[in-house]
Nucleic acid binder design. Sequence first.
DNA 1: ATTATATATATGTATATACATCTAATGTTT
DNA 2: AAACATTAGATGTATATACATATATATAAT
Lengths: 149, 149
Amino acid sequence: MKLEEELKQEKFQSEHQKAMLNILFTSNWLEADSARILKPFDISSQQYNLLRILKGQGDQAISVNNIMSRMIDKMSNASRLVEKLRKKELIERVICEHDRRQVDVRITKKGLNVLQEADKDMGKFSNITSKITQLEATQLSGLLEKIRA
Amino acid sequence: MKLEEELKQEKFQSEHQKAMLNILFTSNWLEADSARILKPFDISSQQYNLLRILKGQGDQAISVNNIMSRMIDKMSNASRLVEKLRKKELIERVICEHDRRQVDVRITKKGLNVLQEADKDMGKFSNITSKITQLEATQLSGLLEKIRA
DNA sequence: ATTATATATATGTATATACATCTAATGTTT
DNA sequence: AAACATTAGATGTATATACATATATATAAT
């Protein structure tokens, strides 16, 4: 849907301005969609993101700092997020031997199960695969990376 | 900067997956940047967005609902946001005559001044104008709108 | 070794947000 | 007109987040 309709605005200052608002708007749109999908699993999209990162590490536990550097939103309270997932037993903590400040984190069996179920639903919805071609996806990433350059 | 570097991830499931993460990441990136720029003016980016909407209406006051439908993030607490800006005297409220449930809102002189100053700084930074061409901006909007279709 | 500095994570606190509920005014039905 | 339904906005409450600061451990400097 055209941004003009979404924001009830006839025209924008410039194509650049419109593109920027489009990024913010689309991000919120995707975020709202995934929050809705994840709700039945009782996890936020940040928590989902964190679980996916841990899944990617397999058996290897990684530190909170390491997690933070891989997250989409680089927020400051990663330890509280970890604590929430730990209470739900979706992840577990391992005291790191060579650096006792550090807390390494690993996804649990239960976490993997929840993630697997959540992934099924996530695949169905906010599925941009059906909306744009693979080439377009690559172009899109290219443009966004140019902006952040 | 390549998303692979930003998220310390060697590869992604698919170009579609990468594009989606790129949208979310870029949005957070822009958001963080504008929050930083707006901080000296003591307004959040949501408040900035609201002021811009009101400026676009000129002298005409518009309802809280109308504002909400024009905002980038369609959140539920528009009235609290309005109240915050009113306390700062950046906007003013007008009781609507033909529907007394409705509260119409208009930007004040002070609000226009703050906005003008803020706009100067906003123009300098997160300025995507220098990063991509006008044609590319149009392409980007087109791709994002396709995703939301 | 002692002191200073840096790092990893945790926590206190203020503010923001989501979601549900509430109130007042308007519109609709009978 | 009375009863019901809908709409505009406000508010209570629980949770989330940002930002500053604290704590413990590790590293570097003297």
